[in-house]
Amino acid sequence: MAREIPYIAAVQEAIRVEMERDPSVVFYGQDVAPSDEDPLVQAFGRERVRVSPISETAEIGMAVGLALAGYRPVVELLMAEFMLVAMNQVVNEAPRLRYMSGGQVKVPAVFKAGYGFTAGWAGQHTGSIYGMFMGFPGLKIALPSTPADAKGLMATAIRDDNPVCYLINYLLVLEHGDVPEGEYTVPFGEAAVRRSGSDVTIVATGWTVGRALAAAETLAGEGIEAEVIDPRTLNPLDTATILSSVEKTGHLVLVDQGTRHGGASAVIAAEVAEHGFTSLKAPIAQVTALDVTVPYSEPMEAFVLPNEEKIAGKVRQVLGEAPVAA
């Protein structure tokens, strides 16, 4: 049975359900349940639900150690940027230990954080920095864009035997949607086709999925049918679904809340350019955040971000362009 709950509640629900299901799941982080009255503490006790100091390196490294010893930690990191002070543990320990040990060990840990809080939080708390994690084989990246996915991807992240950066988009936390009750998982590496269309493929993640769908509605009024694909996980990345869509539409617009250079959309563009070139009738186009630090003031912040108009405009441009020379 599904019922409508907010995205943020879906995440919490997944953690609770998985903790009930598997006693090896532990959950900790800064400000996680400082009060003993907290429902998670009430349900699972202080041993499995802990509040930890502002020591990201130790918090994340400890998760790696818990995982090596058979537990499934979920570390609450609040904002993706806070992982940056512990970059060694996130990218240089967690994803590499299995490989370097010749497969002897595994690191089933979830690094849970929010990103993209372009709501006036200025330069250090608004980044959409998931793209940088794509360069670390061994590290998975989940970016839920709906409440149901928020739950299902968290459950999968917890059950996955590898380190996962599970990144919620802070702009979506209060979005409501149908979420199945009880145990519910969404597989990694399977993109969701949020809208089908035959004229152009739009790939978007997180908050930009909604912007892309809104743009698609506008375009539908003009007789342009856009297919909107949400990869849901960037690693593993479902390139097959994207490529087959591009085969059908011949046009690709990539939307990314992150910056343009070195980002997720650039990686997807490269995959399609290499493996889908003959399908393309026009150059691939990207609608990304500008290559600047996100400014505080509202009009400037809006200027930097992708939005419906920019996406629709880019689609029109791509469809109007000359075919790619074969």
Binding site: A58, G61, M62, G65, L66, Y71, N92
Partner: peptide, 19 residues
């Protein structure tokens, strides 16, 4: 395990001790 990053193993040990 051994890690090549100086001190990178310290927090890992805490995690295992916690288990």
């Amino acid at each position: 395990g051994a890690t090549g990053v100086v001190g990178g193993n310290l927090p890992l040990a805490l995690g295992t001790a916690l288990t």
